[in-house]
Design a protein around this nucleic acid. Structure first.
Length: 311
DNA sequence: AACAACGTCAACCGCCTCCCC
DNA sequence: CGGGGAGGCGGTTGACGTTGT
């Protein structure tokens, strides 16, 4: 037992002096993987014993679900995923496991961590409570449209390079993306994550401070108008930017229904989101919400809101 | 170079629900 | 029906890495 494990509190299990806690070793991982590969998962307490692991059943379950499962996705939360998390959280609040159902390969823990580290950080910067109406409005009318704008810009950039309309991407285990041609039904190329679009190499200019008037010159006072009532959410004036402007395989998450989940889960091995809009998944550190220019942008917009009483 | 502050995320805790006997 | 075990969930912690001073 390591120092960390030794220092942790007893969790009220029956005589658990032999139970190990703290970080998992490669050997333990190996035991767990091999056992589940042979016998399947479930019955975690007996699984732990039979696999020769000195861990609680809960610990085994958590390690498997959050880390060792073959379809667990690792790495940056994409723009689409960020948008979906914001949208679903606005509907369901901290129902992390429910939200995670809509993000194949992502765990509730990962989404929860994302929310706490990124989203709550913004609330803190804006000096408002993450559950306040003010912050919800900021998300709904600023952050989410901004994400949509960035997704679109990335898609448009990909279109000009001829890679997005009929192709999608599948993440490989070594952090490469196979472009996949729907029409041809075959792998059409491989590129490294680093090849993805960034503000530096994009052929489409993306202003660091977006022009909100393009979308929001006359905001509809009814929030439902932006949340699922229009074909594609967040585009109140479809003459300006509407569904017809979007790539044909762009995902309209306003259509998400509970019954979609099983089918989405079936697709999880193909990394569903990258399939929807591969090039827009260029969510590296330069594009992620949370970078300093984005922070500045939000603060600026928030200040404007405070002055005018609207966006 | 050293230290502090901050961010990330794996892992744990405690409570709740479900299900079996 | 109810007691108890197992599993699931949301909240929290703390080690470790990164960034700033």
């Amino acid at each position: 037992m390591d120092e960390r494990g030794r220092s942790l509190k007893n969790n009220n299990m029956e005589d658990d002096t032999d139970l190990k806690r703290g970080p998992w070793t490669a050997e333990e991982d190996c035991k767990l993987i091999n056992y589940i590969a042979t016998n399947g998962e479930g019955r975690w307490n007996s699984l732990s014993r039979c696999a020769g692991l000195q861990r609680t059943g809960k610990s085994c379950r958590l390690r498997w679900l959050n880390y060792l499962r073959p379809d667990v996705r690792r790495g940056n939360i994409t723009l689409e995923e960020q948008l979906l998390i914001l949208e679903l959280h606005s509907r369901w609040g901290n129902r992390w496991s429910k939200i995670a159902q809509y993000l194949p390969g992502r765990t509730d823990n990962e989404i929860k961590n994302y929310w706490r580290t990124r989203v709550q950080k913004h609330a803190k910067q804006l000096k408002c409570d993450v559950n306040s109406q003010q912050f919800k409005d900021t998300m709904k009318y600023l952050w989410m449209p901004r994400l949509v704008e960035r997704i679109q810009s990335a898609s448009a950039a990909a279109l000009t390079t001829g890679s997005a309309a009929t192709s999608s991407c599948i993440t490989t285990s070594n952090n490469q993306f196979m472009t996949y041609d729907y029409n041809m039904g075959q792998q059409s190329g491989v590129m490294n994550n680093n090849d993805y679009i960034t503000p530096e190499n994009s052929s489409v200019a993306l202003s660091p401070v977006s022009d909100l008037t393009e979308y929001y010159s006359a905001p509809n006072p009814n929030p439902e108008y932006y949340l699922g009532q229009v074909g594609n959410s967040y585009y109140p004036d479809q003459n300006l930017v509407g569904p017809q402007m979007l790539p044909e395989n762009y995902f309209d998450y306003s259509r998400l229904l509970d019954e979609d989940v099983p089918a989405m889960q079936e697709q999880s091995n193909l990394n569903w989101f990258e399939n929807i809009n591969g090039a827009a998944s260029s969510s590296d550190s330069l594009w992620d919400i949370g970078e300093s220019d984005e922070d500045f942008w939000f603060l600026q917009q928030q200040q404007q809101f405070n002055n005018n009483g609207n966006f």
